[in-house]
Amino acid sequence: MVWWWWILPGAAALAGALLLLSGLGALFRGRFLGAFSGVLFGGGILAAGVAAILLGLNVQSYARLTHERPVATITLSQIETQFFEATLTQPETDATPASTAVYPVHGDEWRIEAHVLRWKPWANILGLDAQYRLDRLSGRYQDTQQELTAVRSVHDLRGGDVASERRWTLDVWDVSRRYRDYVDAVDTLYGSAAYMPMADGAQYEVWITQSGLIARPVNEQAREASAGGWVQTD
């Protein structure tokens, strides 16, 4: 997180406040010329510093509340009709290496789910982004009757999956609940999912936002499969 947007204006505002207080002190001592210059320059610097801080907060709030980051890439390879292999790649972080796993998926669409810990807007502004833990990868059918009778495929992304465990542990949620009465920063813990159509060679990126998961087509095969105003998230 970049802190300069409030450190520099804050330092200027502090200097202005000190000049202003010095000018007021000179006024009480009868030093009118020093008082005038102190109040004039101190007040001006203080006002400019406060205005810069407010502007910085406005910019920072927009940046944090619209922040997105990638959580997975899904690449599909068709084996037969309504049967695909989904290669799930999770990106490298500062603490852990990237990971890749392959899952068999039946159906017309893939679906990825996650638990999301969402912070309140003021906590976002301070730099706390939405936390997540990938939960499962599954296939789904466009036809509801097939969904009831056809082969299902659901894969747990928690358990021994190092890539998902590294993203978020329940300790974050437990601590936030325990101290919620003192620091009410947690908005909600909820489930989020994104699903997109499967096609041979299609590749998608899954992103976490402050509102949950979203999915985007990456290559031409994915764009063709998801053309026509296809709903990406739920």
Rank of each mutant, 00 (worst) to 15 (best):
V172H: 10
Y204I: 02
W230H: 15
V2C: 01
A52M: 08
D174Q: 09
G43P: 11
I45P: 09
L148E: 11
L137A: 00
Q131M: 09
D143A: 09
Q145G: 00
L19V: 03
G43M: 01
Y195G: 07
P121G: 03
A12K: 00
M198Y: 04
A227Q: 15
Q203V: 12
V183L: 14
V172W: 05
P197M: 06
E147F: 04
P104K: 11
S99H: 14
Y132S: 10
A13T: 04
Q232E: 10
W122F: 15
V231C: 09
A222C: 03
Q60L: 06
A227C: 09
L76R: 00
W173L: 13
N124W: 06
R136V: 01
G107E: 02
I112A: 05
A227N: 14
R166W: 10
R31F: 12
R140W: 01
L19W: 13
A17N: 02
V102C: 05
G16E: 08
T100K: 02
E113N: 09
V39H: 08
L24P: 04
P91G: 07
V50E: 04
L189R: 05
W4E: 12
W4I: 07
S37L: 14
D156G: 03
I125G: 01
W119S: 06
L19C: 06
A63G: 03
Y204G: 02
S61T: 14
W110L: 04
R118A: 13
G139H: 06
G34T: 05
A98H: 08
A130V: 11
I45F: 06
A215V: 15
T89Q: 06
L18E: 09
D174W: 02
E224A: 13
L33G: 07
L19P: 00
I74D: 01
V105C: 05
D94K: 13
G201Q: 03
G23A: 05
A98V: 05
R29W: 12
R118Q: 15
D184S: 08
E68S: 10
A52D: 05
V162T: 15
A63I: 11
R180K: 07
D94C: 08
Q232V: 14
Q210Y: 03
Y190A: 14
V175T: 14
H155K: 07
L24T: 12
Q60E: 14
R178V: 04
L27G: 14
A199E: 08
D135K: 12
R29G: 14
R140E: 11
S164L: 06
Y179C: 03
R140H: 09
G23H: 05
D187S: 13
L55A: 13
A227L: 11
W230Y: 15
E147H: 12
L189I: 15
R177E: 08
L76G: 02
A227S: 15
D200S: 06
W230K: 13
